[in-house]
Computed example of a mutant assay.
Amino acid sequence: MKRRTLVGGIVAAAASAATPGTAWSCRIGMGDVDRLQKRFTEIIASDQRHGGRLGLEQRAAALADDALNLQNAGTATQRVRNSLYASAAAFRSSAMWAAIDSRRYDVAEAHMREAQALAEMSSDQAIKFRIWSHAGTLYRHMGRPADALAANDVARNLHLTRRDPLFACLGHARQAASLGLTNDNAAVRHALGCAQDALERADPDLVRPVWMTAVRNGAELETLALAAHLRLGNFAQAEAHAHRSLALLHPQMRRDRAINTARLAAAQLGQGDIEPAIATAMRVPSDIAAQHARVTRMLRGFGTGLRATAPRSAAVRTWAEHAATWKITA
């Protein structure tokens, strides 16, 4: 995939921002930034509905380039230029997230490096938090707990988290999910307790970025608590968090709902509840089951766990027949 490099693109845009040509006739303003923000909202909505597909990643990367190209298109105030860098960083962070979601981790790391450079030039704390928090998630999925915890610490130590407890909530919750890789029950529970406390202190009326929607009502906290307890093998606690997350997720968040449904099935299977687990797994929408890399992998893992728990049972045959309709090997 072609993308603007740090040397050829970001630095060039930074240089033009520092010494704008006097011959430019075009004036770039906050109206241009607002139009980019509308496109970012569309990217977030598509991600919530469909998840991280290649097309979404490519659109987000192209929009990041569009935001950078505006730096060269005319004169602008420093506020506008900072906002353009923030927009470019936001789009690039969505490209990064889409690559994580589709388990293309090497590509996600490349997006991450560009997003981090852009965020530094923007001086936008919220987008810095998003990028470093996503970095923690990337390393968690890669099975690198030390790197995941270190990246989460960068996000959690931004002064934004002291100004707005909702960001602190997300930081603690993602730290808990990463701590699940370390098998440290006490640390996970402490981090989740800190997240819950921060959520209760957060002002519900503050205006926040559109990507914080699921954090505001506690759905993201329940989702990350589910991930942490499932990793620890605390299946009863994981099931409780799964039910709460599914109750709180907005209807348009189909990707998260599918992931947490698959996790709920795993938690039920972990407790030996085979029939309920199969019924739950079958509720995953067929289009997401077949086309979303993370969900497909989870369902394959569910099939493996089911065969280990109840070999040669009718339940195994029932699940295999259903999974075949999704064209996945389960």
Rank of each mutant, 00 (worst) to 15 (best):
V11Q: 13
R81K: 15
A315I: 09
Q37A: 14
I131T: 12
L6Y: 00
R144S: 10
T296Q: 14
A151P: 02
G51Y: 06
Q116K: 14
A119G: 07
N72S: 13
Q37G: 13
S313G: 08
A126S: 15
D184P: 11
K327L: 12
R49A: 13
I127P: 02
M298R: 04
R208L: 08
I328T: 08
G143L: 12
A135G: 14
D65E: 15
L224S: 01
R156S: 13
T182H: 00
N72G: 04
L36C: 03
N183T: 10
E275P: 06
D32N: 14
A88S: 14
M121T: 05
Q48Y: 11
M121K: 13
K327E: 14
H322I: 06
I44G: 00
R244L: 09
L264I: 01
V210P: 01
R300W: 03
I288Y: 01
I131W: 01
A262Y: 01
Q58T: 07
T137R: 15
A198H: 05
A98T: 09
M142S: 09
A240V: 08
Q196V: 01
V210K: 02
D34V: 00
P20V: 03
L6A: 10
P20Q: 05
W24H: 12
D203H: 04
R92T: 15
C194A: 13
S25Q: 08
Q78M: 11
L68S: 03
R307F: 09
I43Y: 02
G305M: 10
L36T: 02
A23Q: 07
A15W: 01
T213P: 00
A323M: 05
Q58G: 00
A240C: 03
I328M: 06
E200P: 02
A187L: 03
N183Y: 11
R144D: 08
R162E: 15
T5F: 03
L68C: 14
M282K: 15
L192F: 02
A12Y: 07
S93M: 13
H292L: 04
Q271H: 00
L158N: 06
L181V: 07
W326F: 10
C169M: 15
T19L: 13
T325L: 11
L170H: 01
L160C: 06
S133F: 09
I127W: 01
D124Q: 11
R103T: 12
S83M: 09
L299M: 10
F91S: 06
D47Q: 10
